[in-house]
């Protein structure tokens, strides 16, 4: 890893950083963990990106049967596409429509569908987002550049427990005839959290 990051300045390494490195060293010495396993997790964590979620969304836009399955049994549906969810969390997909817009937050910690989106952005874990998304979602959306049309309800989802939520954004207009890969290009991470809509075709 160190070859990919510049060395940290002394002042930047916090007490907690030092202590976790000490813990790592001790656990390796005591054979509680192995460096191979740690490296394996680091590599696999880095391989997960929102492109996985985007493929799921694009498939749902193209395949009505898949879409219905995704909304009712998300684990099985994404399993069909080869995505293995972690054994101890479930996945639920909520669909944006002309009438309702979903926004996902975790007010208690930072629950997030990492199996399909990779690690959450820093803002998702910030106090400001966790505090504001539930009480003023429209102001938050405006800050992200999304002004909802009149008459659209906002449904905020606070993922407090074992279920991770993915938003199925609306398919942008004028995308008839596009294939799965081209559609997936329009699906941003933010659109699957619900702070944005999918990109329109001319803005790719």
């Amino acid at each position: 890893m160190s070859d990919e990051h510049p060395p940290l300045l002394h002042a930047e390494r916090s007490r907690r950083a030092t202590r976790i490195l000490a813990i790592r060293q001790l656990l390796v010495e005591k054979d509680v963990v192995t460096t191979d396993e740690l490296d394996d997790i680091i590599v696999r964590a880095r391989a997960r990106t929102p492109a996985d979620g985007a493929k799921v969304v694009a498939r749902a836009w193209l395949d009505e049967e898949f879409r219905e399955r995704l909304l009712t049994d998300a684990r099985a549906a994404v399993g069909d596409l080869g995505y293995q969810l972690s054994h101890d969390t479930e996945l639920a997909v909520v669909e944006n429509t002309a009438d309702v817009h979903h926004l996902v937050v975790c007010t208690l910690c930072s629950c997030y569908p990492t199996s399909l989106l990779g690690p959450p952005p820093d803002w998702y874990k910030s106090f400001a987002y966790r505090q504001r998304a539930v009480i003023e979602p429209r102001a938050v959306l405006r800050e992200f550049g999304l002004e909802l049309a009149d008459g659209v309800r906002v449904r905020v989802v606070d993922s407090t427990a074992d279920v991770r939520y993915l938003v199925l954004p609306r398919r942008p207009a004028g995308t008839q005839g596009l294939g799965e890969d081209a559609l997936a290009e329009l699906v941003t991470r933010d659109s699957m959290i619900g702070v944005a809509e999918a990109r329109s075709r001319d803005r790719v």
């Binding site: 429209r138 309800r153 906002v154 449904r155 905020v156 606070d158 993922s159 407090t160």
Partner: peptide, 17 residues
């Protein structure tokens, strides 16, 4: 939230409990 909620009266919140 009562009057503190800034949004539409139709807006809802889902929480897993």
């Amino acid at each position: 939230w009562g009057v503190r909620y800034r949004g539409s009266d139709d807006d809802v919140l889902l929480v897993d409990l």
